[in-house]
């Protein structure tokens, strides 16, 4: 059963990527524990709007943990303290009455801040443009059963393909590295027979673009795996390393 709690919020407010930001403190009173974290922010925004103060900007859309729009660092942890959960699926019952929550945007060089908690993640799209696809045109596809895919490979590919592109891995990584994001896409496509013809260029080009965007290097701290709302395994990073090694040796 839900109950009401009071919270102190320290929220990062920043007008845009050019102006410096700072924390502002808000009192969030009478928060129902059945609310999601974003509903709590909505609630605070309603309060701010009534007071004539600028509401907090944060990206969100589906609110069921799949679109990958939302995300903020809550008390030092991307998407908050609950493992395998996006911010929109994190409910307030996981917080205590009287608790102070520090809410910050993802921070990484490759994710400039748009406003408040919203960051620009188009670097991810550009990594995808570099090779995150199988070059089959509409109409070229053979009959679906023409190439059987072993269940194990299909399941592994699916594990990797679950990535929602939220960027929590980058936010959690002490080096701002996007290896889990890139690794899971390389894994997804390179594990399937359909992705095999382009597997070498795919990994080379995606890694090249990843570096170009200014993401850091993996130091195998595995913080990304712990922060990933889909709990994608770092074994996909190892897989990418292997694919990269094999692809770069002519």
């Amino acid at each position: 059963m839900s109950k009401k709690i009071n919270l102190t919020l320290k929220v990062w407010r920043q007008k845009n990527c050019k102006t410096p930001g700072a924390f502002e403190t808000y009192q969030a009173r009478e928060i129902d524990t059945a609310m999601s974290f974003l509903e709590m922010l909505d609630f605070v925004n309603e309060m701010l709007t009534h007071e004539g103060r600028d509401p907090i900007t944060f990206d969100h859309d589906c609110r069921e943990g799949i679109c990958g729009s939302c995300g903020a660092v809550v008390n030092g942890q991307p998407h908050g303290p609950l493992r395998g959960t996006t911010l929109c699926q994190l409910h307030m019952r996981h917080f205590k009455d009287g608790q102070t929550l520090v809410v910050e945007p993802w921070r990484a060089k490759a994710f400039p801040i748009n406003k408040d908690l919203s960051v620009e993640r188009s670097s991810f799209d550009r990594v995808m443009v570099a090779g995150g696809f199988i070059s089959v045109k509409t109409g070229q596809a053979p009959e679906a059963h023409a190439i059987p895919v072993p269940k194990e490979a299909a399941d592994n590919a699916m594990d990797a393909a679950q990535c929602i592109g939220c960027g929590a891995c980058v936010a959690a990584c002490p080096n701002g590295s996007a290896m889990l994001f890139v690794g899971s896409k390389v894994s997804h496509l390179n594990l399937l027979a359909q992705g095999a013809p382009e597997k070498k260029t795919r990994v080379l080009h995606m890694v090249h673009q990843m570096d170009h965007e200014g993401f850091g290097n993996c130091s195998n701290s595995y913080e990304c795996e712990a922060a990933c709302p889909k709990q994608i395994s770092v074994s996909h990073i190892a897989f990418m390393n292997k694919e990269y090694r094999q692809a770069s040796i002519p």
Binding site: N75, E104, R107, A108, K109, A110, F111, N175, G214
Partner: peptide, 15 residues
């Protein structure tokens, strides 16, 4: 460089 700032989060905590 990639980290984006020396003191990255005001509350730095391992996940």
């Amino acid at each position: 460089k990639a980290r984006g700032g020396h003191k990255r989060y005001s509350m730095q905590k391992s996940v």
